[in-house]
Design a binder for these strands. Sequence first.
DNA 1: AATGAATGAGAATTCATTCAT
DNA 2: AATGAATGAATTCTCATTCAT
Lengths: 199, 199, 199, 199
Amino acid sequence: MVLSPRKLPKQGRARATCDAILEAAAHIIARSGLAAFNTNAVAERAGVSIGSLYQYFPNKDALMVALIQRQQQGQLDTLMAAAATIDPAADLQTVVRALVRAAMQHHRTDDLLATAIDHEEARLPVDDLIGHYLDQGGMLVAALLANFQDQIGPVEPQVAARTLPALVRAVTDAWANLTPPQLDTAEDEAVKAVLGYLR
Amino acid sequence: MVLSPRKLPKQGRARATCDAILEAAAHIIARSGLAAFNTNAVAERAGVSIGSLYQYFPNKDALMVALIQRQQQGQLDTLMAAAATIDPAADLQTVVRALVRAAMQHHRTDDLLATAIDHEEARLPVDDLIGHYLDQGGMLVAALLANFQDQIGPVEPQVAARTLPALVRAVTDAWANLTPPQLDTAEDEAVKAVLGYLR
Amino acid sequence: MVLSPRKLPKQGRARATCDAILEAAAHIIARSGLAAFNTNAVAERAGVSIGSLYQYFPNKDALMVALIQRQQQGQLDTLMAAAATIDPAADLQTVVRALVRAAMQHHRTDDLLATAIDHEEARLPVDDLIGHYLDQGGMLVAALLANFQDQIGPVEPQVAARTLPALVRAVTDAWANLTPPQLDTAEDEAVKAVLGYLR
Amino acid sequence: MVLSPRKLPKQGRARATCDAILEAAAHIIARSGLAAFNTNAVAERAGVSIGSLYQYFPNKDALMVALIQRQQQGQLDTLMAAAATIDPAADLQTVVRALVRAAMQHHRTDDLLATAIDHEEARLPVDDLIGHYLDQGGMLVAALLANFQDQIGPVEPQVAARTLPALVRAVTDAWANLTPPQLDTAEDEAVKAVLGYLR
DNA sequence: AATGAATGAGAATTCATTCAT
DNA sequence: AATGAATGAATTCTCATTCAT
């Protein structure tokens, strides 16, 4: 099955329509899960006709793949933005905290969406797509940690790119799902976990 | 909607049928994901009629809930079995390695099933069910780690019960999804991550 | 794509349902052509739910294939019935007239259905199915004409099975589409055409 | 519904566009049958926008009617060209062979297109159109056969115009669909069939 | 004139669920 | 208790047609 988008709208209304569809899809999954994710609901929420949705995405899975890509790109963007703000003279803990914050930004919210994307990444043939973003993210993280080779073990970029966000998510989820949620503690604990792992 | 099973047969043919249905459901999700999970397919694979499936489960979500419960129970069983084999005089690293092995047993396989259950746990009203197993697992882990209060920080049972398996899974996934997979390294790294986090 | 029927109901209600669906499909095409042939209309006219239709036929093309088979079987049945009534001592013209009558029975009516089936036979992968019926029909015709080897040329069964009904149809259509239609003449002319061709 | 073309451009770019559309329609049907014949596909293959297609044809059926007309005109042209080359002193068999060749030119190829047009002619209100071409063709054939009234029966032009091509097609198809196809034999057999019918 | 994005009715197909046997 | 045919609402997807640019 073809899973690539039908058109790659660079500009104007088409781009806006395409974005609205992806946004609507993300919203529906985040609110009600994969069970409520259907193309009619997406089109309606996006405020476009069902026909338009299929102009941009040849089928439902292609829409999901685009959503995965969007999510990956978003994470990479967040990571790059975080990296850009890090003081080159910062110490290891500060760097890690910045990374943790970047990762948390994407996981503290939308557990339903995050788990949905995890599942769909495992179901759909998106290895190349994921690999690409892992490479990008891994290189970035490796570069940020390169100054600290004396304090930490060797960093395998692909492994780091997978492990660190997942560690953060593991810890964050644990603290966020307590009653009451303890998000502040979550960040501290996540930093501890990452540092513990790296050393 | 009613999400509890219609019957909880403890023994005999009914129990076998019920198990066959859950086994079939798990198999289908593990093979093809949530998108392929439907009651007719489950009944067919289980070798029972669709009518029989609805004798045991009032609706599809109830079947999913039972699957979640089964998974949680399985994890707890594995953990308890692991705990039973641990030498009371073992050191921290040995205990952690035993816990890691128990956790890996459930996550190394069936990424599709594991992510599906994550998603459905977030979607369905199973907080009480999850809480129960977290309590059980948390108490067990806390007890196992009680001897090492001098080497590690304080252990919040519910948090530990959520975090440790998730940490293991994070690390395991990262190493398992390399090409080629490096499952042996995964275990060592997971132990490191857990120890790093606990200290 | 799978084009074989989902079930081959031998008996009872299922067989009746299956027949009703095929009958409805034939009726709709005969009345309004391929453009009006859709599964919802077929199910409605057959008096069954759309779900039931898909219990018996996995998709629309499979329904069409079943219709083709039904048509071929019907023609063969008609031919066999005609053959059974032929006096073994009959002369060539009498035999040919019986064959012509059998062929006309299927073509005088339902031009829309006949042309639709012609088209779909060319579109769908039904060569084996058609071949089977051509063999059967060809053998029957060859046997009927075997007594007249002195009056006619050699008869290639497959060719005869294709040619004779088509000849009949060609002539029949020509006379039937005059205004007013001249069906009586059609039969005489068709006999002439076939005899002319055989000699 | 209006089925006549919006414009009948005799020349220039518009005529070329119109031809390209009809050519594309014929190609799609010939390749994939009526099931794949849709206006968007036709426009794309013709290299024009869907809007332009609707400038020339008010709806899909009108496009089909134009295709039928094109086909009929093509056959008439072929027939006229064939007639023009016939030696006035030629004998019956030679004349018939020329007619057969003309008819075969249109039917040997594109079984899918030919059967599609047959079906659509039966579905759409094109009696007048068909009648016109039958008259033209019938007159031509009658004229060609007028010299041979002693060798053949009386020729009804409309009947002849319908019957002869259909006879040719019947015989041609039978021989062409053998494995391997025997196109050379087909022509001889078609001549025999036509002569047999005329006498 | 030409374009092609957008529309939405409608067609194909699925699947959760019921119920007569 | 078990069966599985039947249902039909819901879902995916198509395609004839329009219309703003």
